[in-house]
Amino acid sequence: MNCSQARNRVLTVSHPRKASEDVREHVRACAKCQAWVKGAMEVESALRHLPIPPAPQNKKSELLKKFRTPEVVVPSERNEPLPLPPRKRETFWTRFGVGVTIAASVLAMVTWMGQRSRRPETPIIAAQPMDDLLANLMKRHVTLASGADNASKRLDGLNQLAADLLKEGKDFAFIASDEDMKALARMYSKVVEQGIMKQAEMVRGPQQRKILESVQQQLQESGEAVAKLAERAKSGSIEPLRQMAEASRKGDQHIRTLLREDAS
């Protein structure tokens, strides 16, 4: 056995018991191979200690927070507590349903406000938010109800609402049920097509162009991100994600047209 053969055999070893006697004999007798083996050991040890950059987005903590959040009991209309859902999917569905209901009410209210062009008399008080999505929806709801007295503010609120729904869609694309994803996609499309696109037409004033450009940019980026995600999502999430991407694309194109008209 020559040095090259012995070294190659050393590099293929996966367990001490598999080291053959002829390799051992060669290395014992060869000073160069002993030094080479020493180098190989250093390299292999060093592989476990290579510096790598820290994770930049703190997603581990976010994920742990989601999994450590205690299950929530949703009060029914008759104020009777529901039994604690035993499975995560059911909890998600319950929370999701409440979220979509709130989002639908936000959209309906914005549409109504756009028609009346005046402030509502009383803000609507809804259930206590149960997770990030609901908390955000409630925030948008209250913002729209209390201060969205012009199209710019309504557009901004709707834009943030769309971002919340989109984030939820992206976060749950791999675990939500097909029905949940479809409902989320429908809601997102409504917010974009019946909310954002209509309010964008009514935005006036010196800040008009800046606001529209910002919304258009978000829709464009969202559409691309969701379309990309659809390529690797589970089969039941692909169509809803494509629907969200299509809604984003429509909104993006619509606002681009408004901007072009404004420029001309």
Binding site: V10, H15, A19, R24, V27, R28, Q34, V37, E44, S45
Partner: peptide
């Protein structure tokens, strides 16, 4: 840490006197 280390040190392929870096594998 290392299959080569496993093979060398545990099968006597390289004698310990020739492997001062063996300590590395014990400190990981």
């Amino acid at each position: 840490t290392h299959p080569v280390a496993d093979a060398m040190s545990q099968t006597g392929l390289v004698q310990s006197t020739l492997l001062p870096t063996d300590a590395v594998s014990q400190r990981v």
